[in-house]
Design a protein around this nucleic acid. Structure first.
Length: 594
RNA sequence: GGGCGCGUAGCUCAAUUGGCAGAGCAACUGACUCUUAAUCAGUAGGUUGAAGGUUCGAUUCCUUCCGCGCUCACCA
C-alpha cells in the first residue's frame, strides 16, 4: 500500500499553550500524539520531530492538524481521533538545521556573525588587475589576495572542492583542498552553506579548465544564512518575490544590480551636466499645503502639532519658480513626486523627476539643451548614443521634432488622412476628438493615434493652451503655448515650456482651473496666491523642464516595466511573514548553553 | 476601479476525463583531491494561496476572499 503520512491518535492536551505547525499556522491548545502501531511509516515522522525539535519532552508543544470529519478543523481533535496529516515545514527544518550550524561554527571557534574582514581586493578589482593573466604568469608570481563574498555555489569533491563567491556583482571561483588548509579550515569548508558570506585568503591561479580562481589558504567565516537561496540555474523568477524581497532578487539575479548601477549613472550624468552649466541643486518641500505644478490627484497627510492637512507634492514646479523670482537663475531638483493615480507598467505612485529651470531662455532654448542632455546621458550610461530597447534600437543622437498637429497628420492611421486645414479647424478637431474644447480634442487625437508610435526619441511641440495652465502663450497663435514634450518607446519622458510669468494671466489661468475643478475635474489646479504674489514681483523670462528619471532609466537599461528600475515599488502588504515566531521556536529548541 | 489570466515542496516546473500529488535544483546521509547546471548511491521535504460548495472522491468543477501579472480607464 501507499505509505501513509498519517499519525493516528491524539491524546491529551494542554489548553492555552501556543503552538506552531509549518510556517503558517498556530493555535491555542497543544497535543501529545502517538503513532499508529500499524502504520510503520509514521514512525519516520516521529523521528523527524525528534530530530528537529530536540526530542524528549518537547513534542507536546507541537500541534497536529485534525481530521476535518471529526472536528471541522484544528485544534479540537478528540483523544484517539484520526489525525489527517502530520506536517513539518521544510522551511522550519532548514532553518533549524542552519540555526544549529551556527553553534557548530562557534564550536570550531568562528563567529557566525560580526567579524570584520579587511580585503585587499574586491572581486571586480581582482578580475580587472589579474583576470587576463595566463596560468604560467599566475603560477610564477603567486599573487596573494584576501577577498570576500557570498557563496553562490559549492561543488564538493571529497577532500577538495570549488565554490563561487560573489562580491560587488561579480563572481570568483574559490578552490579549497584539504592539503592547503588547516584541518579546522577544511572542517569549516564542510560546514558552509550556499548563501553564507566568507573571507578567503590565498593565491591566484588558473584551473586546468582555464578559470581564473583563488586557491584558499585560509577561510574566515563572516555571516550565516538561515534561509535557502533560490535555485542556481533558473534563479529567482517569481515577479512578486523579486519585487517584495528585492534583496533576494539582487542576490540571485546579478543583472539586477547592473540596472540600478545604470540608474545611479543616469542621475550622476544629469547632475554633472547641469552643475557644469551653472545650475544649483535645491530641495523644495515635499509636503505642501497646496499642491500644483501638474494635473494629478495628490496624497494627503497630516501634521499633528500644526493640526494641518498637507499634500505630498505632485511636482516641485511652483516652488522652483519662486526661486527664479528670487534670482536663482538656474536651479534644479531631483527627487520624488507622489501622484495618487493608478499603477501600471509605466506608473508608480512615487516616482523620481528631474526638474530644472533656466531664466532668460525659452522653450526653444531648452529643446536644444534637451537634445544634448539626452545624448550625453545615453553616452555616460551605456557608452554610446544608440541603445537596444526590446525589438528597437533607439538613437539618442538624432531626435526628431514635430509640432503636435504635424505629428497627428504624420501618424494618422489608414489612407483617409486629414489635411492641416482640418486640424486648424476647431470644429473639425472637436468633432473627431470628442472633447469639450478644440485643444483637449487635439490632445485626444494625439494620444489616440500618435503617442504609442513614437518609438525613437521625438520632440513634440506647440501644445494647446487648455492643457497647459502654467505655460506662456504662443505670440502668433494664442490657442497654443510654447511647450514641448519628449517621447520615446511610446512613453512621455519629459515636458518643458516657456514659463508663464505674467501674474494677471496666471491669475486667470488658475481661475479657469478652479472652474474645471467645480465641474468635477479632480486634477485641476488649486489657486496658489503666494505663487501669484511671487510673480507680481516679476519673474524673468524663464523656461523649465521635467524629465522622468524612472522612465529614462527604463530606456537606457532595456527595462519594460517601471518596477524593474525602482528598487521597492509600491505593493499591497503581503500579510503575515511569521519569521519572528519561527526563529523563536527554533531558538527554544536549540541545545542549551549557547 | 473594470476585463482576462495565474497561485502546486525553499527555488524552477509537471500531474491524462475529477481517481494514490511528481521531477530537477537546494537540504540531509555516504563516496569522490581541478569541478563548473560536477557526478554517483540513498533519505527527507506538500493544509496544491484561504474559506465554503458539488462529489463516493477535488490540484482539477462552482462561489467568495487574498496576492500577483497582463490589459483598459486615470496619469508622467
Amino acid at each position: 500500500m501507499h505509505p501513509p503520512k498519517n499519525v493516528v491518535g491524539a491524546v491529551g492536551s494542554a489548553p492555552g499553550a501556543r503552538v506552531r505547525l509549518g510556517n503558517r499556522w498556530h493555535a491555542e491548545g497543544a497535543y501529545v500524539y502517538q503513532q499508529d502501531a500499524e502504520e510503520s511509516e509514521s514512525a519516520n515522522n516521529v523521528k523527524g520531530l525528534d530530530a528537529l525539535f530536540g526530542g524528549h519532552g518537547k513534542r507536546e508543544r507541537f500541534g497536529i492538524l485534525g481530521h476535518p470529519s471529526y472536528n471541522g478543523g484544528f485544534p479540537s481533535v478528540p483523544p484517539g481521533g484520526l489525525i489527517k496529516e502530520l506536517t513539518l515545514s521544510l522551511e522550519n527544518e532548514l532553518l533549524a538545521q542552519r540555526f544549529r550550524r551556527t553553534h557548530e561554527l562557534e564550536a570550531l571557534g568562528h563567529r557566525p556573525y560580526g567579524s570584520r574582514f579587511d580585503y585587499t581586493h574586491t572581486v571586480p578589482q581582482l578580475w580587472k588587475e589579474h583576470g587576463e593573466k595566463n596560468a604560467e604568469a599566475l603560477e610564477a608570481t603567486k599573487i596573494a589576495a584576501r577577498v570576500c563574498g557570498r557563496i553562490q555555489s559549492i561543488r564538493g569533491k571529497g577532500k577538495a572542492g570549488f565554490m563561487h563567491i560573489e562580491h560587488c556583482g561579480e563572481k570568483l571561483q574559490v578552490y579549497v583542498k584539504i592539503d592547503l588548509l588547516s584541518e579546522d579550515g577544511f572542517k569549516l569548508y564542510q560546514l558552509l552553506d550556499i548563501g553564507d558570506t566568507i573571507g578567503v585568503e590565498g593565491t591566484l591561479f588558473r584551473t586546468r579548465t582555464g578559470e581564473f580562481s583563488i586557491q584558499a589558504a585560509k577561510l574566515t567565516f563572516l555571516s550565516k544564512t538561515l534561509l535557502s537561496m533560490p535555485e542556481k540555474f533558473h534563479g529567482l523568477e517569481d515577479v512578486e518575490t523579486r519585487v517584495r524581497q528585492r534583496y533576494l532578487d539582487l542576490i540571485a539575479n546579478l543583472d539586477v544590480r547592473k540596472t540600478f548601477v545604470a540608474r545611479a549613472k543616469v542621475v550622476q550624468s544629469l547632475r554633472r551636466q547641469l552643475d557644469e552649466r551653472g545650475f544649483i541643486e535645491v530641495e523644495t518641500p515635499m509636503m505642501q499645503p497646496l499642491y500644483g505644478g501638474a494635473a494629478a490627484r495628490p496624497f494627503v497627510t497630516h501634521h499633528n502639532t500644526l493640526d494641518l492637512d498637507l499634500y505630498l507634492r505632485i511636482a516641485p514646479e511652483l516652488y522652483l519658480k519662486r526661486l527664479i523670482v528670487g534670482g536663482m537663475d538656474r536651479v534644479y531638483e531631483i527627487n520624488r513626486n507622489f501622484r495618487n493615480e493608478g499603477i501600471s507598467i509605466q506608473h508608480n505612485p512615487e516616482f523620481t523627476m528631474l526638474e530644472f529651470y533656466q531664466a532668460f531662455t525659452d522653450y526653444e532654448g531648452l529643446m536644444d539643451f534637451t537634445v544634448e542632455l539626452l545624448r550625453q546621458t545615453a553616452i555616460d550610461v551605456t557608452g554610446g548614443t544608440t541603445v537596444q530597447f526590446g525589438d528597437h534600437t533607439l538613437d539618442f543622437s538624432n531626435i526628431r521634432r514635430f509640432t503636435m498637429r504635424e505629428a497627428v497628420l504624420e501618424f494618422w492611421p489608414g489612407d483617409n488622412k486629414p489635411s492641416m486645414e482640418n486640424l486648424q479647424d476647431a470644429e473639425w478637431v472637436k468633432a473627431r476628438g470628442g472633447k469639450h474644447t478644440p485643444g483637449e480634442s487635439l490632445v485626444e487625437l494625439f494620444e489616440r493615434y500618435v503617442e504609442k508610435n513614437l518609438i525613437q526619441p521625438t520632440i513634440i511641440y506647440e501644445y494647446p493652451v487648455e492643457v497647459s495652465p502654467l505655460s506662456m502663450r504662443n505670440r502668433r497663435d494664442p490657442a497654443f503655448v510654447d511647450r514641448f514634450e519628449i517621447f520615446c518607446a511610446g512613453m512621455e519622458i519629459g515636458n518643458a515650456y516657456t514659463e508663464l510669468n505674467d501674474p494677471n494671466e496666471q491669475r486667470k489661468r488658475f481661475e479657469q482651473q478652479l472652474g474645471m475643478k467645480e465641474r468635477g475635474d479632480e486634477e485641476a489646479h488649486q489657486m496658489d496666491e503666494d505663487y501669484v504674489r511671487a510673480l507680481c514681483y516679476g519673474m524673468p523670462p524663464t523656461a523649465g523642464e521635467g524629465i522622468g528619471i524612472d522612465r529614462l532609466t527604463m530606456l537606457l537599461t532595456n527595462s519594460r516595466s517601471i518596477r524593474d528600475v525602482i528598487l521597492f515599488p509600491l505593493l499591497r502588504p503581503e500579510g503575515e511573514i511569521h519569521i519572528a515566531s519561527l526563529l523563536r521556536s527554533v531558538e527554544a529548541d536549540a541545545p542549551s548553553g549557547v
